[in-house]
């Protein structure tokens, strides 16, 4: 095998496999109290490292967005340029103030300019972005809650009971809607969702095993 392939693929894959095996062993292994304390120390160290790395990964995500908008500007589309400039400008301003806070020892969240931007620009826009979904959900409810066949009829009945159980409207019509909703949620619904929780667990175990066996390669990004 070529030397470069070893450094490019084999070593990162082995590193992932080793960390997985070691951390699983650290969790289940018990010899005596002192050994456990040592093992816990190493476990915590690995966890702390991954927290630090995750913070840097999130920063790279922000840089990705900036690169995307720089590319849009470079394409010279007259319509898009002013908008991309606004995005870039705000992002850069935030980052500048964040670094300024870091340099002066002020906690970033309490830095006045930084917090002005997130309180007055980020919070309202981001909540508005999600809240427009209400319109799509309302028209989806109009289209999906139709008793086309027996399963759809059941969907409709359950949906209406839960909707009424969620509001005072239902309580005014019949006080029994709230307990009925609670029963639907805790009995048939919980049973219906349990396979999904089990499925998530199986998926996690399979992902772990694939990483240990070096079968999982998607995380490495582009092919070489």
């Amino acid at each position: 095998m070529e030397m470069s392939v070893i450094w490019r693929r084999t070593v990162p894959q082995l590193l992932v496999a080793i960390i997985l095996v070691v951390m699983t062993a650290l969790y289940f292994l018990y010899i005596d109290k002192t050994t456990k304390a040592t093992l816990n120390y190493w476990d915590q160290l690995l966890i702390n490292y991954s927290i630090v790395i995750a913070a840097l990964a999130a920063i790279v995500g922000g840089v990705d967005l900036a690169r995307y908008h720089v590319a849009l500007i470079m394409k010279r589309e007259r319509e898009q340029i002013p908008f991309s400039l606004i995005t870039l400008f705000l992002e850069v301003v935030c980052v500048v103030f964040a670094f300024y806070a870091l340099a002066t020892g002020v906690p970033i969240l309490t830095q006045p300019q930084f917090s002005w931007i997130y309180l007055n620009l980020q919070v309202p826009t981001s909540s508005a972005m999600y809240s427009i979904l209400v319109f799509y959900v309302a028209s989806a409810a109009y289209r999906t809650f139709r008793a086309r066949n027996p399963p759809a009829l059941l969907l409709l009945i359950v949906g209406v009971i839960v909707m009424l159980g969620n509001t005072s409207l239902g309580f005014v019509i019949w006080p029994g809607f709230t307990p009925l909703k609670d029963w639907i949620m805790t009995v048939p619904n919980a049973a219906g969702y349990r396979p999904i929780v089990i499925g998530v667990g199986l998926g996690t175990i399979i992902l772990g095993l694939r990483l240990i066996l070096r079968k999982e390669v998607t995380w490495m990004g582009r092919r070489d």
């Binding site: 109009y142 139709r146 008793a147 949906g159 209406v160 009424l164 509001t167 005072s168 409207l169």
Partner: peptide, 22 residues
Amino acid sequence: MDAQSTSHAIILIFIILGNIMF
């Protein structure tokens, strides 16, 4: 909560209309 009730009511009316139409 009141707004939840009124807006649920309009959606329920639309669901009923949808079924009548269908």
